[in-house]
Simulated scan of single mutants.
Amino acid sequence: MRQKLLVGLVALLMSASRAWSAPPQAEITNGILNLRVYLPDAEKGFYRGTRFDWAGVVADLRYAGRSYYGPWFSRTDPNIKDFVYDGSDIVAGPCSAITGPVEEFAPALGFDEAKSGGHFIKIGVGVLLKPDDEKYGAFRMYQLVDGGRRTVKRGQGFIEFRQEVEDPSSGYGYIYTKTLRLTKGQPEMVIEHTLKNIGRLPIRGNTYNHNFLVLENESPGPAYTITLPFNATIEEGKNKDLIEAHSNQIVFLKTLHGKDRVFTGIEGFGTTSADYNVRIEDKNVRAGLVISGDHPLSKMALWSIRSVLAAEPFIDFSIDSGSEASWKIRYEYYTF
């Protein structure tokens, strides 16, 4: 009897271990930066929401003893829409529970045209089912009909994700390739994108990177400075006690805590890619990064709570059937 109980206990522990096993992930390095990335997986993936691109979700990046990314939430709950505060916990819903530099594409292709039970597409996710006639909701979980054909290639200092999705019923289709590349001999990561339209309808919209920065888990506050190449203006009314814009800088007036929340659009940028350049620096941690893109900004936002700071640069795209678009985002990490 005792032996049976021991065998049963071991089996239970093994089962629990399998249930709690880490999601699929990969690590790459250039000897200076160490990058850990979650892999797309419809059954076991870290992120299986229907808002953000599944490819290249950064779990952590380390440079010079500093960690730049990680979870900004304490736990997840499928019943939560975006996120909520529960005592000292931050609880995220399935469409928001993601980490690091991650991208979202908008609009959801074909959603407005689809009838209930019809298909629409979210780039980076796949073909989704429209359940009713309500408006599209980014925080709403939709049923995944077809995640397309995905491949992952990894080499010295890079990892490449490829997804091919085609849905004749909606008229949309694409081949999306995303590569995270660590520059040889430098503390730099470049995210390279190519989006090819293989459907019969044009693909038009925008994409942005949410850039969930969790630098050494320090709460955003007066030690942080955001520097831009242009004189920035922000929506001061709802953020007046939390942040201010001074010429080309945005500064925090206090350390965020409790339910403090910063959300503002940022204006003042021009029509060239030179203004897609965001420097974020933390004087306490004595580290920072520069985020730059090779396309002009179409929009920019800043979102922050006590656990994370997110600068969100947007770019527009317009891709006719048979054509493709490419763009890059460069991340330069430094200490001082």
Score class of each variant (00 low, 15 high):
72 W>M: 08
144 L>G: 10
75 R>M: 15
53 D>V: 13
315 I>L: 14
39 L>S: 14
116 S>M: 03
186 Q>C: 14
5 L>I: 12
72 W>V: 13
247 S>D: 11
271 T>D: 06
196 K>W: 07
309 L>Y: 12
161 F>S: 08
40 P>E: 08
257 H>S: 10
198 I>V: 13
173 G>P: 08
184 K>G: 11
7 V>L: 04
99 T>G: 11
277 N>V: 00
80 I>T: 07
68 Y>R: 07
3 Q>P: 04
251 V>N: 12
176 Y>V: 07
168 P>C: 09
44 K>F: 14
212 F>K: 09
208 Y>E: 04
95 C>H: 03
99 T>Q: 14
333 Y>V: 04
144 L>A: 01
114 A>P: 05
261 R>A: 12
69 Y>N: 09
50 T>A: 12
202 P>K: 03
177 T>N: 06
223 A>H: 11
188 E>C: 11
63 Y>K: 07
115 K>N: 06
147 G>T: 00
260 D>Y: 05
24 P>C: 15
183 T>K: 01
273 S>G: 03
214 V>D: 07
204 R>C: 09
299 K>M: 10
263 F>V: 04
30 N>F: 00
286 R>F: 07
93 G>D: 08
289 L>K: 02
31 G>S: 13
13 L>M: 13
166 E>A: 15
16 A>H: 10
125 V>Q: 04
48 R>E: 03
227 T>N: 02
91 V>C: 06
315 I>H: 09
228 L>F: 06
107 P>S: 02
11 A>M: 10
291 I>Q: 02
297 L>R: 00
232 A>S: 05
242 L>S: 13
232 A>Y: 00
213 L>F: 14
220 P>S: 05
44 K>L: 14
